[in-house]
Structure formats: structure tokens, C-alpha cells
Amino acid sequence: MIRNRAARLPVFTALIALALMLVSPGVIAEDKSDDPEYWLQRLGPALTKTSYRGVFVYARGDQVSSMQVAHRYRDGMVEERLVMQDGQIGEIVRKGMNVICVLPALGRMELNNVIPSGPFAEAFTNQLMPVDRWYRPEITGRDRIAGHDVVRLALNARDSLRYSHQLWLEESTGLPLKGKVLSISGDVLEYFHFTSLTISDNLADHEFMVQSEGREVYRTLAPQSSVKPEESMEGWTLGWRPNGFQPAAAPRSGSGQAVAFSDGLASFSVFVEAAAGAGMPSGASKIGATTVYMRRLEKNAEDFLVTVVGEIPLETALKVAQSVDIEDSVVLGARVP
């Protein structure tokens, strides 16, 4: 009997091991769903590769607006259509790198700048930004948004140089259905919130076609590699920036230069150019989470305008703007002496 029991033991152990192997994928999946890192990693692909249509509201300061959006990913290409639901009718349709903007009332809108997820988007979301170094990620619960089960992810800033964020991520795809930006004291500065949402791989072609009448503007997006952020800082230097903010994009900026920085969640842009004529006034303004700070800077008897725009606290914007130094005024469009 004893011998029999001893002989049976390895069989029993093997059965236990086999059972654990069969069970473990489920266990791991369950563990992952409580792991904020797992959700952070899903975020980038979810934004690009999920196909959906819906309506969301967006609020900042005392402005609230409603927008309808359709997004699909097919044959490696992003197609999007965004229709403003309030005020003047307008829509933006993107198919891969081609963008059509129909803006009957806003003739002055610069198409280059309203493209919602331009050529930087894919490149950026592929970057592995160590968001958890600057924010404390935490799953704070589960909820339901626009009829979908969501996971609530809090990203609390680890310092006072940036705002905290909260995201409500759809459970099956990781798509953010609600987002808030919070001040250091916990006040909501801005938010978006889907009020209706359909996730489907079968969105009809006509949902991605221009449907309103008006002035159409066509544009093909330039490849991202045309200007590197570092190259755009020629002629000026930034002496300080909050930890974690890396150059992420080099936008066009008239005669001057501009660089955008991001820490993976928040971003700010620094514009530097020669101040023409009476120029711009100096000072700060805020709406929602967005801060604008403009500062005049004199170098070699030439005036320059430094502007910082971003979803960062005023104090951070001030420090960034004050750390800008002009090295070569000619590069920045100043008159040649």
C-alpha cells in the first residue's frame, strides 16, 4: 500500500501541474486586467486600430461642445471622420495621409493645423514613453460609459509640474471613452466623454465620406521625417524643461521655429520667432487645462517672441518660457545687421 501511494504521488503532482497549466492563462489574464501597465500598453494600439463610431462631448473652461466621430483601421490605413455637432457645420475626413476639410464658415482655419491625428500620431504612439515615471498609474475601479464596461485608470502626477489625468478605458479594446485632466488641487480642468459608441469592424464606407456641402480643402500630409524636432531648435536653446518631457514633434511655425514636448500624456509647444512691428503683448492666459504664456525677449537689439502653449500648470509654462535663450538671431528671422 505504501509503495502504491508513493508511486501514485508523481502522477498526482503531474495532474496538479497540468491543471495549473490549463488554468494559468485565465489567472494571468485576470491579473493583467488589474495591472495599470497592461492598460497603458494597450492605449496606443487601441487609439489607432479600434474601429468605432460615436458622439462625445468635450468641455474646457465654460465651453462645452459635441462631436461625432467615426474611425476605422483597414488594410493598415486609418480612416476618420469628425463632424462638429454644435454651431457651424464642419467636418474633417481623413483617409490615410489624405485629408479633406469642409469648413463652410471658418474660411481662415488653417488645414495644416487642424488635422486631428497627423503624421506624428502613429510614430508617437509607437514610442515607449515611461509614463509611470512621471505619473502614478492605478486602477481605481470599474464603471460603465456609453453602454460599455470600462476600467478606470488614474494617472496621478508625481510632481507639481504637470497635471493629473483619469481615463476610462473600454474593457475589450482599451479605447478611452472618457478622460479628465485634473489640477494639482483636484479640480477638473477639462474632459471628454463619449455619450454613444459603437465598436464594430463593419462600418460602412459612406460613413467616411464628406457629406456636408461647403468649401472643401484637400491636403496630403507630409511625412514626419521631413523635420526632426532637434533640427527645429536651431538658433535657440531651452535651458529648462520638466523631467520627462521629450521633443516629440516639430511643427511649422511661419518664419520662426517651434518644438513640441511630451511626457507621454501631456504636451506643450514652444514657439520662438522674431517679433515683427508692434508685435504681440506679453502675459498669460488659461482656458481649461491649456495655458498660454507669451514673453518678449531682446537679443542683440532685436526683439523676439517666446510663446509656450500647453496642458501644463502656469508655473511650468513660465519656467519653460524664461529658460529660452537666443543663440543665433538670424536663423530666427531677425533682420541681418
Binding site: L40, S117, T125, L265
Partner: peptide, 13 residues
């Protein structure tokens, strides 16, 4: 121009 950039930030499309 800035608004275009922050569409690139993860989670804030």
C-alpha cells in the same frame, strides 16, 4: 499648431 500635437499624446486622441 499645439492642438495638433496634443492629439498625439497617448490617451487623448
Amino acid at each position: 499648431q499645439h492642438a495638433q500635437h496634443n492629439s498625439v499624446s497617448a490617451g487623448h486622441a
